[in-house]
Design a protein around this nucleic acid. Structure first.
Lengths: 329, 329
DNA sequence: CTGAAAGCGCTTACAG
DNA sequence: CTGAAAGCGCTTACAG
């Protein structure tokens, strides 16, 4: 492998000069620069980042911790992260927890030993151990999707968007709105959205029945099951619509409804969350909340870069959203 | 930051001993080991990978070059890659070319300067410059999706699967089979699949009309346009079915067909390729080829690991597939 | 079983 | 404008 020493020798300068030339700091004569560039061109020399990192304590690598890469949301977010990181000469070191919470903590440590310049975590929970690991991290950590007190968080406007969608449904004339939610271990999705649902109904003096409110586990099948449960447990007092906290579970719910030969939205309307590709092409197309994941990823990456540059404002940033009005409501 | 020197001092040994203890090579007395482990525990010491890499020339990082991360195929493949890499203590350094071919070459160099132990490239073309860059790489490179002569390639069984699907359509009684393909710059998809389509028809002495064979650009909209073109250009001699080389374009084709108030598969059948989530939930559900992307990713990663371990067999590996028979044919 | 020494490929004051 | 020297945090023969 060619090293800086080879270049120095071939160009007849010291390696200090080569280094200065490469990093454009300090003086290098036009003459020396020209010789150095020629030699580099000929040899195809590329400085070793390992050596550079050891000296400078910077790797130009950002660790990203994902609950599951093969998910539309995750891949969109990563795409947004990558856009701004790449534009700033950073690379992504990718880790996937396969939804195991302990791995989040493990990876925060692992990534540090790999000397990443910062970490982006797609948050799935607010466990005390996680918060502690983030707090103890030696590099900036930015969390997307959950509000974590000890660091910068970029959160989706869960409450606002949910409330907006519920009000849209009310305006459309629906008065008996059901809800399929998610476990409370994920506070943003499991708690905030449910709370917004209930508060919005209360604000408009609209009541709901407990049987209309169910909790799924994110899987398409669980949407099916929970929809079934709602319908079976409320035979005489069925909802005329349901708000589902993820597109996938909404797809499951729709499956059940179709199987029962009911019409959407005539017999029961379905509103969802996520704006997945599927939500657009399924029959009927889903009215859903678009959280603009790619943009959110980009925002998160920018926050991290700011933190790395010393702008250590520990704060909460709320990202935008929009309602996609289609045919299921 | 705590370094190996701090541990050595606190444990009253030399840093050689700490190193041996950490890497489990050479002798370390029980007594010394115990003291060292205690100190490490207390301090939360993690060895610097940068320093380690500089010495050992190994980073434990594999570079992955993707045409586009926010794509179902890519994220599935990465998931498979990650599974075997993670099981072997490797991490992924992710790059995304945004479909720009020159970036593939750029990233091959960049990743090497980052001292990755190997590179996985999701192939989109067979350009001479790319092949040269791969050939000149100082680390093992494994390509998935295109057969590249100078290195190990894992390829999808494009010809076999296409042929199988065409024969399935013939068995179903379709005799006028159209084709929506992709540009030939992507040989695996653009050339091989089209060739298999034509050869299979020829083998069964079934003819096709040139207007039935169109080339899209992977986008859903292009599937719509090409289907439209087929129908408009062959008014009197319309195909009774069409094979599409990607699910996305098939979705576009279906949109057009529905708009024309034609029934699928009664008026025209649609067979696709890719087994996307969408293909399962769209109406009608798509009969499609499943290339098992996640498995293919895992296989590719395993090949790379083998190559890194010196089993440098330059070869072509053909991955498996299965037909998903659903309702569109 | 253990430690001193050399060296991996860079950068960065510092002296000239 | 340039080079010698030190040092980043590790590992690995080697000598004891």
């Amino acid at each position: 492998m060619t090293t800086i020493n080879d270049i120095a020798r071939l160009a007849n300068v010291s390696r200090s000069t080569v280094s200065r030339c490469l990093n454009d700091n300090g003086y290098v004569s036009e003459d020396a620069r020209k010789r150095i560039m020629e030699v580099i061109e000929e040899t195809g020399y590329m400085p070793s980042q390992s050596a550079k990192s050891l000296r400078t304590k910077k790797t130009g690598v950002i660790g990203v911790i994902l609950p599951k890469i093969s998910t539309e949301t995750a891949s969109r977010v990563v795409s947004g992260i990558n856009d701004v990181l790449q534009a700033n000469q950073y690379q992504i070191l990718l880790t996937d927890t396969s939804l195991q919470k302990t791995k989040e903590i493990e990876f925060i440590r692992l990534l540090q030993s790999r000397n990443v310049d910062g970490i982006i975590l797609l948050g799935t929970n607010k466990d005390q151990e996680l918060i502690q690991a983030i707090d103890q991290a030696q590099v900036p950590v930015v969390v997307l999707g959950q509000e974590i007190p000890v660091t910068t968080s970029v959160v989706y406007p869960d409450a606002q968007a949910t409330s907006h969608m519920i009000e849209f449904m009310l305006e459309k004339g629906y008065k008996k709105i059901g809800f399929i939610g998610a476990p409370e271990t994920d506070p943003a999705v499991g708690i905030t959205r449910k709370k917004a649902y209930k508060e919005t109904l209360a604000k408009h003096a609209i009541s709901y029945r407990d049987e209309w409110v169910q909790t799924g586990d994110f899987a398409i099948e669980s949407g099916y099951e929970k929809m079934k449960q709602i319908m079976e447990e409320s035979k005489d007092q069925r909802p005329d619509s349901v708000f589902v906290v993820t597109d996938n579970m909404a797809v499951g719910a729709i499956q059940y409804i179709k199987e029962q030969n009911m019409q959407i939205p005539k017999d029961i309307a379905v509103a969802a969350t996520g704006a997945s590709t599927l939500s657009q092409y399924i029959e009927p197309s889903l009215t859903t909340i678009d959280f603009l994941n790619e943009e959110a990823g980009a925002t998160t990456a920018q926050c991290l870069l700011d933190a790395i540059d010393g702008k250590k404002a520990r704060k909460k940033m709320e990202h935008t959203y929009r309602l996609l009005i289609r045919n299921s409501v």
